[in-house]
């Protein structure tokens, strides 16, 4: 409802490096931002895919990790007090009576803004779904890619699949509740935190959980209720493991998601923009970073930064239609320095 709606100047979908830097460029030009991201933290791909990998092509930073870059950007935009809405996906976009955009997330957050900036990179990070025949009919009934409420799994016969931190964390968390818990992984090595792996091994040794090595090749059941999974070991015969719940944790993949239904022109899942304003075919909707396309586009973080700066110039005209845009440098402008909180007394 409109009464509960948050009102702001700009809503940014995606809190990756480009979305974060957009807060800076918009902030210098007096625009307040709210950001929506499906992850539980800022940084986008930098945080999710390669937090510890060094990046060498950020201007003036000879080497920085994905995590380090995110931290630095968060510090840089701090003066502008951006508001983050994490663990949420922008689900619908409509126009309000007074011509603003109304974005509603899957968590029910409603944000109204003059300008929408899509900085969604490769799309939303969503759980990878195993390509097992017929898995769709079990999804949300007895196959789950996340745990919303642990109680759902009390006294259940659970199979958890995967070898990373999510698989191990949920194995340790759900074991005390479960009637039976089986962890399935392709190999007898785990990439999760060593402490979690040790705890899991202890539970296996105590007979409190089963560990099976192999890959799930079939789901058996009816009407959406799983009854067993068929496990293919590296050698030997297939084995059926009885269960009533399957939790696959194979990491995340990127899907464009609801942005595809926002009424913006798309080409091969990218948003075509002009190279002056980085605006989509819908005025006041901009696309910056990996999600846009234009002749000569390079999917580089630095390109996204440039796009954010130019986008902010046009966004200013929409948010402050009666003001004249004044181009200033942070080195010399006391006005900008005041906004950044670094002005001399």
């Amino acid at each position: 409802m409109t009464t509960d709606a948050i009102s702001t100047d700009v809503v940014i979908i995606g809190a990756g490096p480009v979305g974060l830097f957009a807060v800076f460029e918009l902030g210098l030009n007096d625009m307040k931002c709210h950001l929506i991201d499906i992850l539980d933290k800022p940084g986008g791909q930098c945080a999710e895919l390669y937090p510890e990998k060094p990046i060498y092509d950020i201007p003036a930073l000879p080497i920085v990790t994905g995590h380090g870059l995110t931290e630095a950007l968060m510090k840089q935009i701090e003066p502008f007090n951006p508001v983050f809405h994490f663990n949420q996906m922008a689900e619908s976009l409509t126009k309000t009576e007074d011509g603003k955009w109304r974005v509603v997330t899957d968590a029910g957050t409603v944000i109204e803004a003059t300008v929408l900036v899509i900085a969604a990179g490769g799309g939303s990070f969503v759980p990878k779904k195993p390509p097992i025949k017929g898995i769709e009919e079990y999804e949300a009934k007895s196959v789950f890619y996340s745990v919303r409420r642990m109680e759902t799994f009390r006294d259940r016969h659970i199979v958890i699949a995967g070898g990373g931190d999510s698989a191990l964390d949920w194995t340790l968390n759900l074991q005390p509740l479960a009637a039976k818990l089986t962890l399935i992984h392709r190999r007898d090595e785990f990439r999760a935190a060593p402490d979690s792996v040790n705890k899991m091994r202890e539970l296996v040794a105590e007979g409190k959980i089963d560990l099976k090595i192999g890959q799930i090749v079939h789901l058996n059941g009816a009407g959406g209720q799983i009854e067993s999974v068929t496990l293919k070991p590296e050698s030997g015969h297939n084995e059926n493991i009885a269960c009533d719940s399957l939790l696959p944790f194979y990491g995340l993949t990127m899907k464009l998601g609801p942005v595809a239904n926002f009424g913006i022109n798309l080409h091969q899942n990218l948003i075509p923009v002009d190279t002056e304003k980085f605006e989509s075919d819908v005025p006041t909707i901009f696309a910056i970073g990996d999600i846009n396309s234009y002749p000569g586009k390079l999917k580089l973080i630095l390109s996204g930064f440039h796009e954010a700066a130019l986008m902010a110039q046009q966004a200013f005209h929409y948010v402050h239609p009666n003001r004249k845009l004044r181009f200033q440098y942070t080195t010399s402008s006391s006005d900008l320095q005041t906004k950044l909180g670094v002005a001399a007394e």
Binding site: G163, H185, R187, Q215
Partner: peptide, 11 residues
């Protein structure tokens, strides 16, 4: 590489 393949299917 062996670890990252854990995120793959039909390995």
């Amino acid at each position: 590489e062996r670890g990252t393949l854990d995120g793959g299917f039909e390995v």
